[in-house]
């Protein structure tokens, strides 16, 4: 039977009624969330707040990937952990918190780092991925696998007083298809379309080295959950098909997902929120020249190749600064 036509239990109704009465959600939107599967990669400053709202909203299956343990220096911003859980795996610590908030979803712990070897197996069972990780190599890996497995990707990042967010690969057109014609973009971009090359290693600041303000990364994490919830509740990730079977009207009142918006947040310690705190930047769509999803990409990027170490993500992201002018 159609999982979108079942009744809600009393318990579900009590818990989700306040979001179900929001115009545009309704019982249908709620049932879509209840039957969705989301993978959150990274249980840190982005993943903790994102997971709270993903779990609160009633996403049916929530996987969490992280290979680290909780440390004292995490706790100013990683609000799904606790002092008593210092030294325990972040994945189990966060699931402890989420289960207490909402016991109804199925939580799947993946207490490991994502690697070229395990990435496809981790991502395949899910409908949508949140990239909450903390280094360029992992971000390119996740994007490539999402392109190959056709998963929408909500990507955010944050360092010091800045944050960024973009919805990628949504809807997830097959690799090499939907390339731009006559200036028209036909498919949504992947991470590589937007961010062709990583920064030199010396310029890629991590939160550990460069610091991070808690509310900045927290805001980006909550915004990630917000984008995931709307995609899943409204079916924005459905690919319109010519036979109409999965078909939904192409959404996008303000901005077509085929040319998404990069949201940037700038937090000034010396001024209150101002006119340039949030900026929305128009990105291009899928690029012909993209290594992962562009012309000829099927020949150079495959799941089998990634498992065997092609491309080499660590090398790709470790280019030194060419010259130091100091």
């Amino acid at each position: 039977s159609n999982p979108l036509s079942r009744s809600l239990t009393d318990e579900e109704f009590d818990r989700y009624s306040r979001q179900m009465i929001v115009p545009g959600m309704g019982k249908e939107g709620q049932l879509r969330l209840l039957t969705s599967r989301v993978l959150i990669i990274g249980a840190g400053g982005l993943g903790c707040p994102a997971a709270q709202y993903i779990a609160g909203a009633g996403i049916g299956t929530i996987g969490i990937v992280d290979g680290d343990v909780v440390e004292p220096s995490n706790l100013h911003r990683q609000v799904g952990h606790a002092t008593s859980r210092i030294g325990t795996p972040k994945v189990t610590s966060l699931i402890t918190h989420l289960s207490a908030l909402n016991p109804l979803p199925t939580y799947i712990p993946h207490p490991c780092h994502i690697t070229p070897d395990n990435a496809a197996d981790l991502i395949a069972p899910y409908d949508l991925v949140l990239d909450c990780t903390d280094n360029p190599a992992t971000r390119y890996l996740i994007s490539d696998v999402c392109v190959l497995l056709r998963k929408p990707l909500v990507s955010a990042a944050s360092v010091q007083k800045s944050g960024q967010l973009v919805v990628l690969n949504c809807p997830a057109t097959p690799q090499g298809e939907g390339l731009p014609e006559g200036g028209k973009y036909n498919a949504a971009p992947c991470y590589r379309c937007c961010f062709k090359q990583p920064p030199p290693a010396a310029a890629a600041l991590s939160c550990g080295e460069a610091g991070i303000m808690g509310p900045v990364v927290g805001l980006m994490g909550v915004a990630q959950a917000g984008e995931a919830v709307k995609i899943l509740a409204s079916g924005l990730h459905a690919i319109p098909s010519s036979d109409g079977a999965t078909g939904q009207e192409e959404p996008g009142r303000e901005r077509n997902l085929r040319q998404p918006t990069l949201l940037i947040y700038s937090y000034d310690l010396d001024a209150a929120v101002g006119p340039y705190a949030f900026r929305a930047l128009k990105m291009a769509g899928r690029k012909k020249s993209c290594f992962a999803c562009g012309e000829g990409s099927r020949a150079r990027l495959t799941l089998g190749g990634i498992k065997k170490g092609e491309p080499d993500y660590v090398q790709f992201c470790s280019a030194p600064t060419a010259r130091v002018t100091l």
Binding site: P198, P199, L262, R279, L281, A284
Partner: peptide, 15 residues
Amino acid sequence: RPGILVLINEADWEL
């Protein structure tokens, strides 16, 4: 340098 986006009037410079 790689890793810097350029936006012209809020749009990716590639446009």
